[in-house]
Every structure is written in C-alpha cells, then in structure tokens.
Simulated assay, not measured.
Amino acid sequence: MSDRKPRLCVITTGGTIGMVRDADGIAHPPVDHSDFHNLLGPIAGRYDLTALPLMNRDSTNMLPSDWSRIAEHIDQSRGEGFDGYVVTHGTDTLAHSAAAVAFALGPPPLLSPVVFTGAMHTPDHDDYDGLANLQTACRVASANLGEVVIAFGSSIYRGVRVEKVSATELDAFASPESYALGRVAEEVVLHDDAVRRGNEAEHPHWPAETGFADRVATVSLTPGLEPALYESLLVSDRPCRGVLLRTLGAGNVSSRETTDWVRWIARATEQDIPVVLTSSFFGGRTDASGYALGQAAIEAGAIPHAGLTEPCVEVKLRHSIAAAQRHGVAACEFVRNVMAHNYFGELGGSPQSTTEDE
C-alpha cells in the first residue's frame, strides 16, 4: 500500500463500544451515531476512513438477517478500493456475526480483511477500551491479512474460531484448542497460519452467499428432559429447519423411557431436519461414537462435528441449510458433508483441509 494512507471502511452496528447511559445508569444504544463517530477523530489522521452507520443495535437483538446485511454491504463495496473493513459490534454475539460474515463472503484469501471489534465498557467508563480496540482493529485491517478476524485487546482471532469467555474481563475472547491468530504491539504480528491477502488476478472473490436459514432451534439436554416438550419443533405448521442438540458430554443422548431423544432424532431425520450434536464444553467437540448412547444417536441420523465453537456451529448449520434449500438438495446429507469440511479453519488448523470422515 506504499506510503499512502490505508483506505478503510468502518461499519458501525451498535454495541457497548458506542452506548450511552441514561440518568438511571442503564446503558443503551444512542439515538444517533454522531458521538461514536467522534471517536474516530484521534485515528483519522492515519487512515483514509469512510464511516458507514449501518445499524444501531444491542448485539443481543442481532438476527441472522443482520448478519446477511453486514455481509451484503461489504460484498457490494468490494470494488471500491478499500484496503480493509472494520466492523464495530456488541460483544455478546460478536463471534456469531464474525463467523457469519466469513461464511457469507466465501473461503479465503479475501482481497481485503474484515476485522470485527467492540468494547467491554461504555465510553463514559474510566476503563473504556473501545478506542484502543478500534485503533487496534484499524491496524489489523491495514495488515497483510486475507480473512475475517476479531481484534480485541492485543489479540487477533480467526472469526470462525473464537468464543466470548467473560462478561467482565477486557480480554473477553479466546480460541478453544487453538492459539490466537496474531498479536498487536508495536507491530501487527501474524501467525504462520494466518491467511494473507489475495490478489485479484489469482484470487477473484467468490460470489457472496449471504443466506442463513431461520427456524433453527437449540435444545440443551438435562437429566430428565422429555422430548415431548419439543414436539412442536417437528409437527407444527411451521416445523423447525434444523436443531442443535447440546449434549451433557461428548455426544451422548438419553434413550430411556420418556427421555428417549434417540427416537426423536430419528423422527427429525426422517423429515429431513438436520440434528447436529454439540457439547456444553468450551470448544463444543463431540465424539459420540465412543459410547453406545452416542453411537445410537448417530445411527438415528444425528450429525457430529469435530470441534466447532458454539457460535460457529450455529452459523454453519444455518448457512448450510440455506445452501441446501438454494440447491434443492436434501438438507441432512448436505449438512453432514459440510460439517466435515474445514473451509475457513473453523475446525482448527489451516483452511481448506478436510477431516477423515469427509
């Protein structure tokens, strides 16, 4: 990028990084974005910044349609010469949105990185971290990086391989069973596994696929939980399109009497409703085949995965169901194949490797 200022697009979506507190001390999104845009002042001299106030939401109110909207705005501006994108976002669902934008924009290398960031404290707080995180994100967006990442504190995380692990600490994110993709100190230091920028001649960008299925349910198994309580997911006028079944261990599912979830899985599979097994443990890895109850769930049609984070497994399920609908193919088999593939490094390691089960 020679000596010219890096040209960055800063997309604001809301979140604590720009919230204000009312007279009762309750934080909420501001009426307009002007106060937040004033934060860009201290760093504007180092970059050619274009600010895009896309939405103004507490991230708890983010929907899959909002993921699509963020990705569509990035995709539509990919020919406008931006060296990178910074997306400010609330932290509660920041990892979901980062993973979703990665899936929507297609496998790396991207020609320009997309860097998500946010804050743990509001601007009026003595320990406000939003400006520092925004400065870090701009530096990362200017680096030789070609994928969707989260920059938070001094760490850089792959967008499909990160979870929020604290509601109070400034270092609120981590990558399970993985190292950070890079660090930011005097320089931006990237790990060897980080995907570098592509070039248009060799890596023309993939057509964006910004669809994410609705009506995807998450069910957390607990001792004695009866599948009859979730009958409406299968038999209502608008049955669900997919289910994340969060198991108690590495994929075991009860088959006893009124808590027979194995039979429920079989019924869902017969209706082409994918049921993906995940775990309540950090990292979500399932290895259901090691126990009889887990093997019974797989034989009934349940789909395991090899260590997706909790945000990413939901995003990947929604994205793959939408893709199956778009291609007019059976959802269960399509989702099973997609879950085995490491498109973006979401299963750990480098992108585009595959598991032995694929």
Rank of each mutant, 00 (worst) to 15 (best):
residue 348 G to M: 11
residue 218 T to F: 07
residue 11 I to A: 03
residue 183 R to Q: 12
residue 204 P to L: 05
residue 119 A to Q: 11
residue 123 P to N: 07
residue 132 A to D: 15
residue 242 G to A: 05
residue 116 F to Q: 03
residue 259 T to R: 07
residue 102 A to S: 15
residue 157 Y to G: 08
residue 118 G to I: 05
residue 204 P to N: 06
residue 107 P to D: 08
residue 172 A to K: 02
residue 139 R to S: 10
residue 224 G to Y: 09
residue 337 N to K: 12
residue 288 A to E: 00
residue 28 H to D: 11
residue 53 P to Q: 06
residue 31 V to Q: 15
residue 234 L to F: 09
residue 149 V to G: 02
residue 288 A to I: 11
residue 232 S to M: 12
residue 198 G to S: 11
residue 126 D to G: 08
residue 332 C to Y: 01
residue 134 L to P: 01
residue 84 G to K: 05
residue 37 H to F: 15
residue 233 L to H: 13
residue 274 P to T: 05
residue 286 T to D: 03
residue 190 L to G: 00
residue 239 P to D: 10
residue 44 A to D: 11
residue 88 T to P: 04
residue 163 E to I: 04
residue 343 Y to V: 13
residue 3 D to P: 12
residue 211 G to D: 15
residue 90 G to L: 01
residue 75 D to R: 11
residue 299 E to C: 11
residue 330 A to Q: 13
residue 232 S to Q: 14
residue 274 P to V: 00
residue 176 P to W: 02
residue 84 G to M: 09
residue 355 T to W: 11
residue 54 L to I: 06
residue 153 G to L: 06
residue 262 V to M: 03
residue 267 R to A: 10
residue 322 A to P: 07
residue 335 V to A: 02
residue 336 R to N: 02
residue 36 F to G: 03
residue 123 P to T: 06
residue 126 D to T: 08
residue 342 N to F: 01
residue 190 L to R: 00
residue 225 L to F: 08
residue 13 T to E: 02
residue 217 A to M: 15
residue 36 F to E: 02
residue 340 A to W: 03
residue 135 Q to K: 12
residue 226 E to C: 12
residue 315 V to E: 05
residue 94 L to A: 06
residue 34 S to H: 14
residue 283 G to W: 03
residue 19 M to T: 08
residue 146 G to N: 08
residue 334 F to E: 07
residue 126 D to Q: 13
residue 149 V to T: 11
residue 186 E to H: 13
residue 218 T to L: 14
residue 196 R to D: 01
residue 238 R to V: 12
residue 126 D to A: 14
residue 253 V to R: 00
residue 94 L to M: 14
residue 86 V to E: 03
residue 101 V to Y: 03
residue 128 Y to W: 13
residue 271 Q to G: 00
residue 330 A to T: 06
residue 300 A to D: 08
residue 118 G to A: 12
residue 281 F to K: 10
residue 92 D to K: 02
residue 148 V to K: 00
residue 151 A to Y: 08
residue 8 L to T: 01
residue 311 P to D: 09
residue 106 G to F: 10
residue 260 D to H: 05
residue 346 E to F: 00
residue 313 V to Y: 08
residue 12 T to D: 05
residue 79 G to R: 12
residue 154 S to I: 10
residue 160 V to T: 15
residue 206 W to C: 10
residue 279 S to A: 13
residue 249 G to P: 02
residue 333 E to M: 02
residue 85 Y to L: 05
residue 41 G to H: 12
residue 328 G to F: 04
residue 49 L to G: 01
residue 149 V to C: 07
residue 199 N to S: 14
residue 75 D to W: 13
residue 283 G to C: 09
residue 255 S to Y: 03
residue 339 M to V: 06
residue 227 P to E: 11
residue 215 R to G: 06
residue 207 P to R: 12
residue 238 R to M: 12
residue 245 L to A: 04
residue 139 R to W: 07
residue 153 G to P: 09
residue 284 G to F: 00
residue 26 I to N: 14
residue 290 G to T: 14
residue 103 F to A: 07
residue 257 E to L: 12
